[in-house]
Simulated assay, not measured.
Amino acid sequence: MTSRLSQDLQLKIHEQDIEIGATCTQNTYYTKATIGSRFNGYCATLNFLVIERVTRNLPVLTKADRPWEIPPNLKLADPEYHAGGEVDIVIGIGLFWNLICIGQIRLSRGLPVLQKMKLGWIIAGDLPNVLGDLRAMCNLSLSRLDTQIEKFWNIEESLNHHPILSSEEARCEELFKKDVTRDNDGKFSDNYIPHS
Rank of each mutant, 00 (worst) to 15 (best):
L131Y: 00
K178S: 07
M1Q: 06
T147R: 10
N191E: 05
A77H: 08
E80N: 14
E174H: 15
L175C: 13
M1Y: 03
E15P: 01
K151M: 11
D185N: 14
F152Q: 13
E150V: 01
L131F: 02
G41K: 14
L111H: 13
L49A: 14
L159M: 12
F39N: 07
N139P: 00
I123N: 07
T55A: 14
K118A: 09
V54K: 03
G41D: 15
S158G: 09
L46Q: 07
D133Y: 02
L145R: 05
N57A: 12
I91K: 06
F96T: 09
D8A: 13
F188T: 06
E52A: 09
D190M: 04
V180M: 11
I91T: 05
G132M: 01
S167N: 12
D190G: 15
P67C: 01
L58H: 05
S141H: 10
A83E: 14
L134M: 09
I102L: 03
G92Y: 02
L107M: 15
E156N: 09
S141Q: 09
G103A: 05
L131H: 06
A22N: 14
L46R: 12
N154Q: 15
F176N: 08
V180A: 03
T23S: 11
I122C: 12
N98P: 00
E15W: 00
N191I: 05
W121G: 03
Q7H: 08
H162G: 06
Q10R: 13
A124P: 00
A44M: 07
Y81M: 03
D146G: 06
G125N: 08
K75D: 11
I51F: 02
N40R: 06
E169C: 08
H195P: 01
S141Y: 02
S158L: 04
F188D: 12
G85H: 09
A124G: 09
E19K: 13
T25C: 10
L142R: 03
L61Y: 15
V50Q: 04
L99W: 03
I155L: 06
L140P: 04
D126Y: 06
R66P: 00
G94T: 08
L11D: 11
L11T: 08
P59I: 00
K63Q: 12
H14L: 01
V180Q: 05
T25N: 08
I13Y: 00
N40H: 05
T2D: 03
L119T: 13
I18W: 11
L119I: 15
N184M: 05
H82N: 13
D183I: 05
Y42H: 12
Y29S: 12
A136W: 10
S3V: 07
R135Q: 15
H162Q: 15
E52I: 01
E174Y: 10
K12L: 06
S158D: 14
I122H: 00
E173K: 12
E169F: 01
K177T: 02
A124V: 09
M117R: 11
C43A: 11
D8H: 10
L111A: 02
N160C: 12
C172Y: 11
N154Y: 02
D65M: 13
W97T: 13
T181E: 12
K118S: 10
S196G: 11
G120M: 04
G125D: 05
V113Q: 07
E86N: 07
I164E: 13
C101F: 00
E174G: 07
F96S: 11
I149H: 04
S189M: 04
A136S: 11
